[in-house]
Simulated assay, not measured.
Amino acid sequence: MQAQKRRREALDLIALWGDAAGQAELGDPGAGEGTSAANVSMLPLSSPSQRLVQIRRPKKCTCDEMFSELMQSFRTERAQQNAWRQKMAEFRKAENEREERRWEQEQRRWEQEERWQQRVGRRQDEMLRLMQEQTDLLRRLVELQERQQEQSLYNHPPSSPSSISSSP
């Protein structure tokens, strides 16, 4: 695609040189001055084919001049291409830096979430341990109460209805 564009530009340059040369070389032999391509049709003794040949007559320039002009065109295009590449490289670098910052932020969020989960897990473990201790404590209290009731029954047998009535 770029090769075709360069070819078109080169042909355009050559056509421009040809038009400029043709316009400069056209002239009234008697007057000794140049005429433009628009004024070629005004020449009295020229046929249409002669006018066309005069308009299309290539500029007589050296190959070195044409080569220098083409090389300058390619240098300009290459400079523009390099500037574009530089901008794209800068854009990619900036995009990579943004992506890296996003990744670091996500990583920090994951680490914070993980620390939070660890805290929650430790709290839950502490709560379970505390509840287990309380359950053990309640079980011991219940056992102690039962023993005390057994001992009170053992030390003080239940009174019979007859003993209740005989008491003063």
Results as ranks from 00 to 15, higher is better:
Q2A: 08
R7D: 04
A10S: 14
L11V: 10
L11K: 09
A15D: 14
D19N: 12
A20G: 14
A21Y: 06
G22Q: 03
A24W: 05
G27L: 02
G30Q: 14
A31T: 15
A31C: 08
G32T: 03
G34F: 13
A37D: 05
N39G: 05
V40R: 00
S41E: 09
M42S: 14
P44C: 05
L45K: 12
P48I: 00
S49T: 00
Q50D: 04
R51C: 02
Q54N: 08
Q54E: 11
K60M: 03
K60V: 08
K60G: 07
C61S: 09
C61K: 03
F67N: 10
S68C: 06
S68K: 14
E69S: 03
E69H: 07
F74V: 08
F74N: 03
F74C: 07
R75Q: 13
R75P: 01
T76Q: 05
R78Y: 02
A79Y: 01
A79D: 11
A79L: 03
N82G: 01
Q86S: 12
M88W: 02
A94G: 04
A94Q: 12
E95W: 03
N96S: 09
E97H: 08
E97I: 10
E99V: 00
R101C: 00
R102F: 06
R102M: 02
R102V: 07
E104L: 13
E104D: 07
E106K: 12
Q107F: 03
R108N: 06
W110V: 12
R115Q: 15
R115H: 09
R119T: 11
R119C: 15
G121H: 07
G121K: 10
M127T: 13
L128Y: 06
R129T: 14
M131T: 03
M131I: 11
Q132K: 08
Q132P: 01
D136T: 09
R139V: 00
V142C: 11
V142F: 08
E143T: 06
L144I: 13
E146T: 13
R147D: 08
Q148L: 10
E150Q: 11
Q151T: 03
Q151C: 06
S152Y: 11
L153T: 03
Y154K: 11
Y154W: 07
N155Q: 04
N155I: 05
H156N: 14
P157R: 05
P157G: 11
S159R: 15
S167F: 12
